[in-house]
């Protein structure tokens, strides 16, 4: 006990040193360099091309997605060759790196179509229960900031990307495993969405600014023990 107590400060100093040399807080691990061309130098994504942001996504979620590209549950001709060569250790390093990057301060896309905007907002905040669609924000958290590890953020993602994912679930290129509850939940929601609803909610979400760190949660607080 005593020895442990004496060791503790030294140990934590060592850990702090170790942590500060971790790539997460400075340079990306070598394998991540090739990703930045598309996913942005800060992992912020590339809205014009529909490339998603990776910054601020949970490490569990990122590594799960990379594995999905490898084993074919997510079919995408761009990402498959990017993910294939990665080892499990590299995936973990990459996932940790991107998850530690702060959510970007996005320039929200402009939204001109008022009808589309109203429909998109309705879906995000209240859902369309007659079609079995719960409010997006009731799972992805108010503002769409996400709830790690299982619920990814949907604000700060390009409209093109959001739309393509809902289509992917519908046409089978983003396969879910019904035994995996997280997969099944979103698969279910996507199946129920019409093209008009998909377009509207994607456009509206992409037009929302990411809440600033002060108002947005970086950690999940359990409500009570």
């Amino acid at each position: 006990m005593r020895l442990l107590r004496n060791l503790a400060p030294a140990l934590s100093a060592f850990l702090a040193l170790f942590a500060s040399s971790q790539p997460a807080s400075s340079a990306p691990p070598a394998e991540a360099n090739s990703c930045l061309a598309c996913h942005g130098a800060q992992g912020e994504g590339l809205a014009a091309a529909g490339y998603p942001r990776l910054a601020g996504l949970s490490a569990e979620y990122i590594s799960e997605q990379l594995n999905a590209y490898i084993d074919g549950r997510r079919v995408n001709p761009i990402m498959r060759p990017m993910a294939m060569p990665l080892t499990a250790t590299q995936i973990q390093g990459i996932a940790t790196f991107f998850s530690a990057l702060p959510a970007p301060s996005n320039v929200a896309a402009a939204l001109t179509d008022a009808t589309q905007s109203a429909l998109g907002q309705q879906l995000a905040e209240r859902g369309e229960w007659s079609a079995g669609i719960p409010a997006c924000f009731n799972c992805h958290a108010p503002g769409g900031v996400g709830l790690p590890p299982a619920f990814p953020p949907i604000v700060g993602q390009p409209a093109m990307y959001i739309e393509s994912q809902i289509q992917a679930w519908k046409n089978g290129t983003r396969q879910g495993d019904p035994k995996n509850l997280a997969n099944a939940l979103m698969h279910n929601v996507a199946f129920r969405m019409s093209d008009t609803q998909t377009k509207a909610v994607a456009a509206w979400l992409a037009a929302q600014p990411i809440p600033t760190p002060n108002t947005s949660p970086s950690t999940t607080v359990k409500t009570n023990p």
Binding site: E64, R73, G132, K170, N171, G172, Q175, D177, K179
Partner: peptide, 28 residues
């Protein structure tokens, strides 16, 4: 940790979707 399991299931699904004309499985 469910990756291995999901991989197997994914394989089954791709098999199933080749056999039937309906694409993908329906989670709902």
């Amino acid at each position: 940790t469910s990756a291995t399991l999901t991989r197997t299931v994914a394989l089954l699904f791709s098999l199933a979707s080749q056999l039937s004309s309906t694409p993908a499985f329906s989670a709902d």
